[in-house]
């Protein structure tokens, strides 16, 4: 388990950037944590760490954003609006599992039953206005 206390959006981003170095093709990161926790900051750091630039925004409307310009692509999902297995199927989620990139899934609570067993869990908890407690759990962490 990896634990980190972040005191700002920038620190969250830098932490994610360093964490990206440990990722492998096929890794799935399931985020747990509500709105305003810094999930997009984490995603931006991850994209930078993977050499994919920093033009990262929340995929709430598009359901998935693809960042494929590096050696290890990042597929950033937001499952907030996904309410059934059929809806999950029609996001193409199961197809993305085969692509050999890294999947970062926001609102993974909504699809917890469909996550593969080797999924990495990222929990971001609010300590105060600026401070966040970040926990990463998974077989390799």
């Amino acid at each position: 388990m990896i634990e980190f206390t972040s005191h700002s959006t920038e620190e969250t981003e830098q932490f994610a950037q360093r964490f990206a170095a440990q990722l492998k093709p096929g890794d799935i990161i399931a985020c747990v944590g509500g709105m305003g926790m810094g999930k997009t900051a984490f995603a931006r750091g991850l994209a930078q760490g993977l050499g994919l630039g920093d033009d990262v925004s929340s995929p709430t409307f598009a359901l998935v954003h693809e960042y494929t310009q590096g050696s290890l692509p990042l597929y950033h999902f937001d499952m907030y609006r996904v309410n059934s297995f059929d809806e999950l199927y029609s996001t193409g989620f199961f197809d993305y599992l085969e692509l050999g990139g890294v999947l970062l899934i926001e609102w993974s609570e909504n699809i917890s039953g469909a996550l593969p067993p080797n999924t990495i869990t990222l929990t971001i908890q609010r300590v105060d206005n600026h401070t966040r407690h970040i926990t990463i759990e998974g077989e390799r962490f």
Binding site: V82, N83, S84, F85, L88, E109, N110, S112, G113
Partner: peptide, 9 residues
């Protein structure tokens, strides 16, 4: 919707 709960809301 499989026998186990697929989507735990």
């Amino acid at each position: 919707q499989a026998q186990r709960e697929l989507l735990a809301k």
